[in-house]
Simulated assay, not measured.
Amino acid sequence: MYAIVDIETTGGGGAARITEIAVFRHDGLKTVDFFHSLINPEIYIPPFITKLTGIDNEMVKDSPTFYEVQDAVRAVTKDAYFVAHNVRFDYGFIKREFGAFDEYFQRDLLCTVQLSRKIFPGLKSYSLGNLCQSLEIGIENRHRAHGDAEATVRLFEKLLVNDRQKLIPIDFYQ
Rank of each mutant, 00 (worst) to 15 (best):
A22G: 00
G147H: 02
D79G: 08
V5N: 05
R144C: 06
R142A: 15
I170V: 12
Y126Q: 05
V69K: 01
Y104N: 13
D71Y: 08
I137Q: 01
L115P: 11
K51W: 00
F101R: 13
E8C: 06
F105L: 10
G14R: 10
R154S: 14
L160H: 00
E42W: 00
L135Q: 05
K124C: 02
I139F: 00
A149I: 09
C132A: 05
V23Q: 00
N57H: 06
I139L: 02
L115T: 15
Q70D: 08
F66P: 02
L128A: 08
R117H: 11
N141M: 08
D90P: 06
I18F: 00
L135G: 01
H26G: 01
C111H: 00
D102V: 12
I7F: 02
L52Y: 06
E150A: 15
I4V: 15
A75V: 03
Y126M: 06
I43C: 14
G13P: 01
F24L: 07
E68C: 04
D27A: 04
D90R: 09
P47S: 15
Q114T: 15
A22I: 00
K61A: 11
R144K: 15
I45G: 08
L123D: 04
V113H: 05
F89H: 12
S116M: 10
G147D: 03
R117S: 08
L115D: 10
D6T: 13
T9G: 09
L159N: 07
I168M: 05
E97W: 03
R154D: 11
Y104S: 14
H36E: 12
P47Q: 11
Q70T: 06
C132R: 04
N57G: 12
C111E: 03
F35I: 07
A84M: 05
G138I: 00
P121C: 13
Q174N: 14
S116R: 07
Q165W: 00
A80D: 01
I55L: 07
R96C: 07
K158Q: 13
I4A: 09
Y44C: 13
F93C: 09
D90I: 14
I39L: 05
M59D: 12
T9S: 14
I168Y: 01
G129S: 13
V32G: 03
L135E: 00
C111N: 04
S127H: 02
T65E: 02
D33A: 15
G122F: 09
A80E: 03
D71F: 05
I137F: 02
A80G: 08
D171Y: 06
R154P: 00
L167I: 10
Y81I: 14
R144V: 11
V32P: 00
L109F: 10
V69R: 05
T31P: 00
K78Y: 08
Y173C: 08
R107M: 11
G11D: 04
